[in-house]
């Protein structure tokens, strides 16, 4: 029981984190029609910034806030200097150019911070276990991640659905030329959206940083998961990204936690312990394959252009 609740919450937390990453990716794709492989690099930069700033200031929260600002600025600089010139080009060009950016960022991090990973220690008040149910404790920090991510998701939803900027973003996603023709500064809007996406990726990175080590290449595996999520959810759909992210987070976490035991009931011990890790890593991809076979456009496709 304890394990089930704990793993369930872990799955939720991981799913929400993935959502932050996938939301930026799907916004950028839906609005600018840009495939950004370097999104994972922004996640990594968020974590590195947070670790650095937190060490400077001696405060986790201050460091996190500064890191958030820094990734926002980095995203805007990246958009203005490089990615802006890729809009309207072939998707393959995007893949290639942003692949080059990944190489650049990984190497730049190695140059600046060195090949060894960093650690981002948590303040004491976030490390205490919190009783959530009678007799069941859960780390405060993971609860904080869930709370922050849910809050951001809510703000994002309200921002996109209820504000003027959000209206422009939605309009831009459904017809780019038209809102340009209506006199909206589309360039500025694009820069803004990209910066927002970058900040979301940075937020995901800096929140994940205390749980895992901050290291080079940390953005790449999770980027692929984010891609899987937006493919499952339907490209350009924030709602789809949210549901798919929770789904993928759950399946991945629960699969890793319970599959080995389940397999052990069917297979011999040795066979199960070798097959289980591979199988649980594969689960998500299997899920994606099934979704694409049934609904090639994803579960919640954004409205057609």
């Amino acid at each position: 029981m304890l394990l089930v609740v704990e793993q369930f919450l872990n799955g939720l937390q991981f799913g929400l984190l993935l959502f932050l990453l996938a939301a930026g990716l799907t916004l950028v794709f839906g609005i600018m029609d840009l495939v950004n492989l370097a999104h994972g690099s922004l996640y990594m930069m968020g974590a590195y910034f947070a670790a650095t700033f937190a060490a400077w200031t001696g405060s986790f929260l201050l460091g996190a806030l500064m890191a958030l600002g820094a990734t926002l600025v980095l995203g805007i600089v990246l958009e203005v200097t490089a990615l802006r010139h890729l809009y309207g080009r072939d998707h393959l060009d995007h893949v290639l150019a942003t692949f080059g950016l990944i190489l650049f960022f990984n190497e730049a991090v190695r140059l600046i911070w060195g090949p060894a990973g960093l650690a981002l220690p948590l303040p004491a008040w976030l490390t205490v276990p919190v009783p959530i149910l009678p007799g069941i404790h859960y780390p405060a920090y993971r609860l904080a991640i869930i709370a922050v991510a849910l809050l951001v998701a809510l703000l994002l939803y309200l921002g996109v659905m209820r504000t003027r900027i959000g209206m422009l973003i939605r309009a831009g996603a459904s017809n780019r030329e038209m809102i340009g023709a209506l006199g909206i500064n589309i360039k500025l809007l694009y820069t803004l959206v990209f910066g927002l996406g970058a900040a979301l990726a940075g937020l995901a990175g800096l929140m994940q940083a205390p749980i895992l080590t901050v290291q080079i290449g940390m953005g790449e595996n999770i980027l692929i998961l984010a891609f899987v999520i937006i493919v499952i959810g339907g490209i350009g759909s924030i709602r789809g990204a949210f549901l798919a992210a929770i789904f993928v987070g759950m399946i991945d976490t629960l699969g890793r936690a319970f599959l080995p035991n389940l397999l052990r009931q069917v297979l011999s011990g040795a066979a199960a312990s070798t097959a289980a890790p591979a199988l649980s890593s594969m689960l998500i991809y299997l899920l994606m394959a099934i979704v694409l076979v049934v609904r090639p456009e994803g579960l919640f496709p954004a409205s057609r252009r």
């Binding site: 692929i224 591979a278 991809y285 299997l286 394959a289």
Partner: peptide, 19 residues
């Protein structure tokens, strides 16, 4: 979608080999 699904399958093969 095609770019990403081929990518995902290759990652799947990668994990199988790791296992």
């Amino acid at each position: 979608y095609f770019i990403m699904i081929t990518l995902a399958f290759a990652q799947m093969a990668y994990y199988v080999a790791s296992g």
